[in-house]
Design a protein around this nucleic acid. Structure first.
Length: 560
RNA sequence: UGUCCCGUGGUGUAACUGGCAACACGCUUGAUUUUGAUUCAAGAAAGUCCAGGUUCGAGCCCUGGCGGGACAACCA
């Protein structure tokens, strides 16, 4: 119907949207769009899944369709309920709600009947050979395979054997059910693919009811059909499976779902393989699936990323069939863009250097207003305190300032954010040559917002009042790997872990307004970056995770 | 020496299906700035893997190469 709508639509469409719009235009499935997100519950979702989730739910959303959540749980060996729960939590956190929640295991009975019908049509047979024998007959991509000696069993015998497989009369691996297609096909997946295998593992939902389980190829497409999924979107590696996907649908005469493949997301400096992520967790290279350095949804949530930022990212990376490696800087951009608008600012000193304001009266304290977010004209203000002793960032003072340095140096001046301009009069040195403290004078006339001093300074630095600063633990995260592509390096990907991916600062000094920060609260620590309160944080032991630094032009220029 | 998929700035995605290669990130420079942030402005950067062909005209169509990826789990 809405032909005009599409003509008006001038934005460029990705190739999947083009397919969908063509289908709607031609009236296929009466214009209905129904997608699904089909995770296997054997691990946690990561940013790559987020792209798929945004794609599937986004497609349905855009074209008035629906999206099912379907757990592809056909391998009882690796699948667990723990994962089912985490997957649901992560999808909801990303901001999506599914139409139906299904499990491939819901369809085991029906899929079994599908298999029986193929046997009856003479298109499937029970093979008694071992996995090795079957593999040896399979041929190679360039050589045809050989037919099994069991290929020509009678339909009655196949029916009987398959029933007995279901009954548990044969041991694991003793027999499989195979589709009878073409052992000489140039497509390996069409060389009599295995449909069912015998497994005695306890299934996370069906327990030990089943002794046989369908393979991916004989479960996924069938589930799509049962749910009348119109567009079954998956990643590129399933492209060669599509002829088989279509073959089963045709032979079974069931709802013709269409499989469409797109290129999965790759991010530099990170790995996306579930197996390797699991290895990081198992070997305690990270603290768990939700370690803030992990590319998992749960890890990124703990790190302080927002659903909005992730969705924006998924949108910006696009959808195509070309292999790609996205630069993490794009993710960081999306995160900063979102956090800049939504987070309140606070002052925290990570590496404190004491400063004594020698001309500030002892015992005196004054409060100064500080805006919470300059992005909002009418943002609220909070009070910060100021007195004779304060802490500044050790980094913000240089004994021998390099060219272009505009923070504090001997004899130099800077403004303390929200407060006064100070001048460094004296540097107190420890016996070991390190800097013990600074003795400065302040200019009472230079008070922020009502500066009558006439002094112009180039630099502005943050500080906290020593008298009421509170302690905090701050965890500084950096990329988990030190090379762009840890997967395609010599040796193990573990050899390329970044040893500096986590730096813990146990005694940072924070302004007291942070005292009641709750887990997941997000802030911008002025001039440092965006931070998120860790889930283990309490008011007596505050913990902040650095989500991402602020852009730092100076650091970049100065690095050389 | 098989089948399938894919080749557009550094990265990613576009180019209304044949009409001046655009947008974003990143990068550079400048302005503003009480965050070396944000914001704003300007700029560098691809002639579309190569070679033929069709056409007035090709990133888009055709042919042939070259390059990359996927496929030989009783995983998904």
């Amino acid at each position: 119907m809405p032909e005009k709508v599409f003509e008006i639509n001038k934005e460029s469409l990705n190739f999947i949207e083009q397919i969908v719009e063509e289908d709607i235009r031609s009236g296929k499935h009466a214009g209905r769009v129904h997608t699904r997100f089909p995770p296997e519950p054997n691990g946690y979702l990561h940013i790559g899944h987020a792209k798929s989730i945004c794609l599937n739910f986004g497609l349905a959303d855009k074209y008035n369709g629906k999206t099912n959540l379907r757990f592809d749980d056909t391998n009882p060996e690796t699948e667990e309920t723990e994962y089912v729960e985490s997957i649901k939590e992560d999808i909801r956190w990303l901001g999506f709600e599914w139409e139906h929640e299904f499990f491939a295991s819901d369809y085991f009975e029906q899929i079994y009947e599908f298999a029986v019908s193929l046997i009856k049509k003479g298109m499937a047979y029970v093979d008694d050979q071992s996995a090795e024998e079957i593999a040896s007959q399979k041929g190679t991509p360039t050589e045809p395979g050989k037919e099994s000696q069991y290929r020509s069993r009678s339909m009655e015998e196949n029916l009987n054997l398959f029933q007995r497989m279901r009954n548990g009369e044969f041991g694991e691996g003793a027999k499989v059910l195979r589709a009878k297609i073409d052992m000489a096909s140039p497509n390996m997946h069409l060389r009599d693919p295995i449909m069912y295998r015998i497994k005695f593992d306890k299934h996370h939902r069906t327990g030990d009811k089943w002794k046989i389980y369908p393979m991916y190829d004989f479960a996924h497409g069938q589930s799509d059909s049962i749910e009348e999924i119109t567009h079954s979107v998956c990643t590129l590696e399933f492209e060669v499976h599509r002829p088989l996907y279509d073959w089963y649908i045709k032979q079974l005469g069931i709802f013709p779902s269409r499989q469409i493949e797109f290129a999965r997301l790759n991010l530099n400096y990170t790995i996306m393989s579930k197996r390797k992520l699991l290895q990081l967790v198992n070997e305690k290279r990270v603290s768990g699936w939700d370690d803030p350095r992990m590319p998992t949804i749960t890890g990124m949530r703990r790190r302080g990323l927002t659903p909005e930022a992730i969705r924006e990212f998924a949108d910006r990376v696009g959808v195509a069939k070309r292999e790609n490696v996205i630069d993490v800087s794009l993710l960081e951009f999306c995160v900063r863009e979102d956090l800049n608008m939504r987070t309140e600012r606070r002052m925290v000193v990570l590496d404190p250097l004491k400063v004594v304001i020698t001309n500030y009266p002892e015992g005196q304290t004054e409060n100064l207003p500080a805006e919470n977010n300059p992005e909002y004209k009418d943002s609220h203000h909070r009070e910060i305190s100021f007195s004779r002793e304060i802490f500044i960032e050790r980094d913000d003072f240089e004994l021998n300032p390099p060219e272009g340095y505009n923070r504090l140096a001997p004899g130099g001046m800077v403004r303390l954010k929200h407060a006064f301009i100070i001048r460094c009069d004296e540097t107190v040195i420890n016996p070991d040559e390190s800097i013990k403290e600074l003795r400065c004078t302040y200019f009472p006339e230079s008070r922020s917002g009502q500066d009558k001093s006439g002094i112009k300074v180039k630099g502005v630095i943050h500080f906290v009042n020593a008298a009421d600063a509170i302690g905090a633990e701050v965890r500084l995260y950096d990329r988990l790997f030190k090379v762009e592509n840890p997967d395609s390096q010599e040796g193990s990907f573990l050899d390329y872990l970044n040893p500096d991916s986590l730096k813990v600062i146990s005694d940072a000094k924070a302004e007291p307004t942070l005292k009641n920060a709750k887990p997941l609260d997000k802030f911008q620590f002025l001039r440092l970056g965006y931070f998120c309160v860790d889930k283990d944080s309490t008011s007596s032991h505050l913990i902040f995770n650095r989500t991402v630094t602020l852009k730092d032009t100076w650091a970049k220029v100065h690095k050389k």
